[in-house]
Write a protein that binds this DNA or RNA. Structure first.
Lengths: 107, 107
DNA sequence: TGTTCACATTGACAGGCTTCTACACAGGCG
DNA sequence: CGCCTGTGTAGAAGCCTGTCAATGTGAACA
């Protein structure tokens, strides 16, 4: 439900804000984009670390923030850990920011 | 351009992250929703302050963060100050989060 | 089978930034 | 001038970001 349609509830506002907080860091935005645009929709950590001038633990921390926000999922396959994007969450956030036709829905 | 379409650039990632940072606080999300869903698309500060258990300066500060992020605009009319939502910014963020058909665009 | 190596995460900590309140200031109205 | 509305500033508490060190997991090899 778009936040422009009606006043958002306190609980939902907190939930949405948590997700947006996960996207409030440039590194995490780039990580999400790298994972989402990776061939096959998956990426493993080694590749992600190589794309930044940051150390492994730092990337790992950022990935955890994205994971706990429900934006990405991960799975271990042998030695490597693969990450992928959870489209449901992105679509939901996109819907929250969308503008209803006419700018408002009711009242 | 959706961030899932191709790896986002460093500059654009920083710009998007700044906007999301403005939305990373529950109070600001609720403020934006209150303004956007207000009859006429406008709201004045006195109404907004009444909706929270926070002091006036705090709300004023949050409004400034939203304003500097380009998400809302304001104008003084006599004694009261009116706020409204800038739909362009919301639409752009919504597009960034949208998922291209098939999950990816090229390559 | 046991060791060694590579991959990735977790924990602890320093530095910087954000958030919130209290007080004080500017702008308009009666 | 007195009052109300809204903003700006200064300061304390808390959170976030990034690095180093240590741990856990799985594969390769003698």
């Amino acid at each position: 439900m778009p936040l422009a349609a009606e006043p958002i509830g306190v609980d939902q506002a907190a939930e949405v804000a948590t997700a947006f907080k996960a996207l409030s860091d440039p590194v995490r935005v780039r990580l999400l984009s790298l994972i989402a645009s990776h061939p096959g929709g998956e990426a493993y950590v080694n590749n992600l670390i190589a794309a930044f001038d940051l150390t492994g633990p730092t990337i790992s921390h950022h990935l955890r923030v994205l994971r706990e926000a429900g934006l990405i999922g991960c799975q271990r396959r042998g030695t490597w850990v693969y990450y992928w994007v959870v489209p449901t969450m992105l679509e939901r956030l996109s819907e929250v920011l969308s503008i209803p036709a006419g700018g408002r829905a009711n009242d």
